[in-house]
């Protein structure tokens, strides 16, 4: 069970804008150490913007974001990644013409400890056997599911305390979706890394998360434990597909 003593990531009351259009309104969210939290919502509701704000790709106009007690809003990704947040980007975004191994090395870009990197590559091979099999292949030749494994391994290469994953189920066959979520749970338990899971597939996401937030047109409309959300009639109607 997750420990509840400390919040690793704390987003409080952020507003973000794309030009005149407000993408996030007063969004607050916390992720505790070692916990899986899912951030749910339909298309264009602000899920990816939240992720971009955490990474420093979008600057919030108001509010602030702290990580391990340090302000990280208005800092570039290089600082955020070094602090211990690593992204699994939407649609995976592997470097298509780098090999799988080179993709892993890019994940460790901010690190300088050569031996540690080498050990971590071996660790990723254990965690994701497919990554080992494909290590010399160019990333674009892999299937979507395989690419998702590489994307996770690449993100873990930064040795993060928090993994933020943007729609890991996107474009995968149902069979692979299940496998990916199994692995996410494994990564969380084995590596003790906290995970913020941004997903449209609410059923799947809540099945492995301890808590969840629901975003609608840029605002948090619901937040609760995963179990309560799964049983919430509003959720069942809008996101979980229960008749």
């Amino acid at each position: 069970m997750p420990t509840w003593e400390a919040a690793v990531l704390e987003i409080s009351h952020i507003d973000t804008f794309y030009g005149p259009i407000q993408a996030l309104k007063d969004v607050s969210l916390t992720v505790n150490e070692g916990e899986i939290v899912s951030l749910l919502g339909g298309n264009a509701c602000g899920k990816s913007t939240t992720m971009k704000a955490i990474l420093g790709l979008v600057k919030p106009r108001n509010g602030h974001i702290t990580f391990n007690g340090r302000r990280i809003d208005h800092r570039p990704p290089s600082v955020v990644v070094k602090a211990g947040i690593s992204p699994v980007l939407e649609a995976r975004r592997l470097f298509p013409y780098l090999t799988v191994l080179e993709n892993l090395r890019m994940g460790a870009y901010t690190r300088r400890d050569k031996n540690g990197i080498r050990q971590d590559i071996e660790r990723m091979y254990d965690l994701f056997p497919i990554v080992k099999d494909r290590r010399c292949q160019v990333a674009s030749t892999l299937s979507g599911g395989e690419q998702q494994m590489v994307a996770m391994a690449r993100a873990l290469m930064a040795r993060p305390k928090l993994l933020i994953m943007d729609e890991p189920s996107m474009g995968l066959s149902p069979l692979f979706v299940e496998k990916v979520f199994d692995i996410i749970e494994q990564v969380n338990q084995k590596e003790g890394v906290a995970i913020l899971l941004v997903e449209q597939n609410a059923n799947m996401a809540l099945s492995i998360a301890s808590r969840g937030y629901v975003l609608q047109t840029g605002e948090i409309v619901l937040k609760d434990t995963a179990r309560n959300l799964l049983n919430n009639p509003l959720m069942q109607k809008a996101y979980l597909g229960v008749a």
């Binding site: 990704p77 990644v81 975004r93 592997l94 013409y97 080179e102 090395r105 890019m106 994940g107």
Partner: peptide, 23 residues
């Protein structure tokens, strides 16, 4: 070299490279 790998990665997807912490 590592620099070469970073140049290739940036050439292929500079947004992803940026998100990995590359300046």
């Amino acid at each position: 070299t590592k620099l070469g790998m970073v140049i290739r990665a940036t050439a292929q997807d500079y947004e992803a490279a940026y998100a990995m912490g590359v300046n």
